[in-house]
Design a protein around this nucleic acid. Structure first.
Lengths: 129, 129
DNA sequence: TATTTGTTATAGTATATATATAACAAATAA
DNA sequence: TTATTTGTTATATATATACTATAACAAATA
């Protein structure tokens, strides 16, 4: 199953679901128009509450990753470059600032961090066949 | 003042304090042995509770950034490479994975992210005179 | 007309963040 | 010795977030 979660993780369940969907889109496993499980079906499959899945899907909708349609279900939508992209870049810059700051205090060089970036790009884009 | 916080931010106050100290160490503004304000003094200066500052300092102590001594105060300690460094690298890899994943879905290239890394390294290391 | 599916509404539990007071313990200062 | 400083511990309260449990509603579909 593509959408799995770790109930013991300190990362909120709804964020784990959200991240799995984004990863699916990034790797090509999920494409424009692909249906996601219904909120009730995924909740039952994961052993969590309906509202937890609904929260994940609602976040994804706000971010432009899915389209929810009552009585029809939820499908994947690949976002185009737009205002959401700028929001992402701002958040990424803030997160990277924290990472780089601590890296410097621990004598971790920039090659080690840029290496992580290249590694994950390769892993995910490699799956896009 | 070096240690400032935004009380309206959604980032917890104790984490803001923690991050300001790490930034101070990264930029060279804070060095091994430098005293930090007492928990009561900084709490009064920022207009927050004593326990909020204590929580920030306690996290910094666990991470190896400060040494707290009852009746003497708290001083900066620059961590050396060790087990804490590996914990940091693991956390950094997880955070970067999330960033890269979303970047791919938004057609943001790796140069844009590695550029952010180089920019912040330069800004912080440039201050070290 | 019945079913499916997202949506909304309450309510309850647990945890995290922050505050407010108070008291304690150890080192230092007077 | 005594008083002060400073970190530490202990309660208690308030708010927000995460998650669960039920129930009902609304719109599209079968």
């Amino acid at each position: 199953m593509l959408l799995t979660v770790n109930l013991k993780s300190e990362e909120p369940i709804y964020l784990q679901i959200r991240n799995r969907v984004v990863e699916g889109i990034a790797s090509g496993a999920l494409r424009e128009g692909d249906p996601l499980p219904t909120v009730r079906a995924l909740a039952a499959e994961l052993g969590v509450n309906l509202h937890t899945v609904n929260k994940a899907y609602s976040f994804l909708r706000i971010e432009g990753f899915v389209k929810m349609m009552r009585s029809r279900g939820t499908v994947v939508t690949v976002p185009r470059r737009g205002r959401d992209t700028q929001d992402f870049l701002d958040a990424a810059a803030a997160a990277i600032k924290n990472i780089v700051t601590e890296a410097i205090t621990r004598s971790v060089g920039r090659e080690e961090l840029t290496g992580m970036i290249h590694k994950i790009y390769s892993e995910l884009e490699g799956k896009k066949k």
